[in-house]
Simulated scan of single mutants.
Amino acid sequence: MRRIFDYINDVTLRAYVKFQVFAEDEPVRLRSVLTSAALALAFFIPSLAQADITDHIVTVGAVALPILVGESARSKVTPTDPADEE
């Protein structure tokens, strides 16, 4: 049982470190993904109560738009790592 908890702890720490590295390297992409996740929760959960397909289409559009805009903005932003500037 101890090995299972050690494995879960190891996986959790590795994921946390990877998330920190991703947040440092890709701040614009991270913000766009977090915005999309918040919009997905805000739009999709209430639209489950309705059978109308337009709500689902609007939800997909509202969630995809910040990701697309974030990718566009990411290409225009200078790198955060000083080693990339050389």
Rank of each mutant, 00 (worst) to 15 (best):
I4L: 13
F43V: 08
R74M: 09
L48V: 11
D55Q: 12
P82R: 09
P82S: 06
I57T: 12
F22H: 06
L65G: 01
L13T: 10
D81H: 07
G70M: 04
I53H: 10
H56T: 11
V33M: 12
Y7V: 12
D10S: 15
G70I: 02
E71P: 02
E24P: 01
T59N: 03
T54P: 01
L41A: 13
A40N: 01
I4F: 08
A62F: 08
V11G: 00
Y16H: 04
I8D: 02
D55A: 13
E71T: 12
F44T: 03
V58D: 04
R74K: 13
A37C: 10
L30N: 01
T12C: 04
D10E: 05
Q20R: 13
L48D: 05
A15G: 11
P27S: 02
M1R: 06
A83C: 05
A64K: 10
A37R: 04
F44G: 03
Y7C: 09
D25C: 09
R74D: 13
I45N: 01
A64F: 09
D81Q: 08
S47K: 01
S32N: 04
L68Y: 12
D84M: 14
V60S: 04
V69Q: 04
F5R: 12
A64M: 13
R31Y: 01
R14A: 15
A62Q: 00
D52A: 11
M1D: 03
A38L: 15
V33C: 03
S32F: 04
R3E: 15
V69L: 14
S36P: 01
F22N: 07
I57M: 11
V33A: 13
R74Y: 12
T59Q: 01
Q50S: 15
P27H: 06
R31P: 03
G61V: 07
S75I: 14
Q20F: 02
Y7D: 00
P46A: 07
F44M: 11
F44R: 03
V17A: 09
V17N: 07
I53K: 09
K76G: 03
H56G: 05
P46Y: 05
V63Y: 00
V58K: 10
H56V: 13
F43P: 03
T59Y: 02
S47E: 10
D84Y: 05
L48F: 02
S32W: 03
E85G: 09
I67V: 15
V58P: 04
T35I: 14
F22A: 12
A83W: 05
A42N: 01
L34S: 09
I4D: 00
E24M: 08
L48H: 03
F43N: 05
G70N: 01
V33R: 06
K76H: 10
V28G: 03
V21I: 14
V60W: 06
Y7G: 03
I67M: 11
R2E: 00
A51N: 14
A42R: 03
D81N: 15
T78I: 10
M1A: 11
L30M: 14
A83T: 14
R2W: 00
S72D: 00
F5E: 00
D81R: 11
P27A: 08
T80P: 00
T35E: 08
